[in-house]
């Protein structure tokens, strides 16, 4: 009988998706500063409010 606890990578599906999402964004044309802010908001802070995401997406969009 296995006595190991679940590998967070396999049972934390949302985190796996969020990490993959950030990696995919890095291959797109979205500015790195925005990607970094999204990573912080989603992965580090776990903040999925519209307000926080909008703030992350609007950084450095001044042209």
């Amino acid at each position: 009988m296995s006595t190991t606890e679940p590998n967070p990578e396999t049972s934390d599906i949302p985190r796996k998706i969020f990490t993959h999402f950030i990696e995919e964004l890095k291959t797109s044309e979205i500015p790195l500063s925005i990607i970094e802010q999204l990573e912080k908001t989603i992965l580090t802070e776990g903040n999925f409010t519209e307000q926080a995401l909008r703030a992350a997406l609007t950084i450095n969009t001044e042209v």
């Binding site: 998706i17 999402f21 995919e24 797109s28 979205i30 500015p31 997406l57 609007t58 969009t61 042209v63």
Partner: peptide
């Protein structure tokens, strides 16, 4: 307008990328 257009492209790309990954 340019900022809004740029913002829209970014948020659309972000949303589409997320949808694709999910």
């Amino acid at each position: 307008h340019k900022q809004a257009d740029e913002r829209s492209k970014i948020s659309l790309t972000t949303s589409a990328t997320y949808g694709k990954v999910v």
